[in-house]
């Protein structure tokens, strides 16, 4: 349990769900957001076209446990490379970082190396995402 959940035992797991980059395909993110709410988490959805700086700031301001991104248009690796140092600098390295969307197999290792431990490509089950968050937010 992290400090926040220890001091507030009733506090729900907080998930930041972000849409990085210029793409407007947000149906996947919205479906996941609803499923995470149904799973009992508090979800903060950023809306479209977020920058790495913007995502970092929202994650800090909202004191989230999970930083999740939905990427559909192929810019996930360059974006995560820019996001990683900003999150670390902001002291968010101990949060759970997830990414989902159109993520080809050959990029998964690189995403993991960048610190995105949970990778949920197209076809992932909603329950699997919720279970992963429950098991790994500690």
């Amino acid at each position: 349990m992290n400090a926040a959940t220890q001091t507030q035992p009733d506090r729900r797991i907080r998930v930041l769900l972000a849409k990085p980059g210029l793409d407007g395909h947000d149906q996947g993110a919205k479906v996941v957001a609803r499923a995470m709410m149904d799973a009992g988490f508090e979800v903060i959805y950023t809306g479209l076209r977020q920058t790495p700086e913007g995502i970092t700031r929202i994650a800090l301001d909202e004191d989230v446990d999970v930083i999740a991104m939905s990427s559909m248009a192929g810019s996930h690796l360059p974006f995560c490379r820019k996001l990683r140092p900003l999150l670390l600098e902001a002291g968010l390295g101990d949060k759970l970082w997830l990414i989902g969307g159109n993520l080809p197999q050959q990029d998964h290792a690189a995403l993991r190396e960048l610190g995105f431990k949970g990778i949920f490509p197209t076809g992932s089950k909603l329950d699997a995402i919720a279970d992963y968050i429950r098991e790994n937010v500690a």
Binding site: T51, A73, G74, S75, L77, P78, F79, K82
Partner: peptide
């Protein structure tokens, strides 16, 4: 803002 998105889709 275009970095990583040029020529992709």
């Amino acid at each position: 803002l275009a970095e990583g998105e040029v020529g992709r889709v």
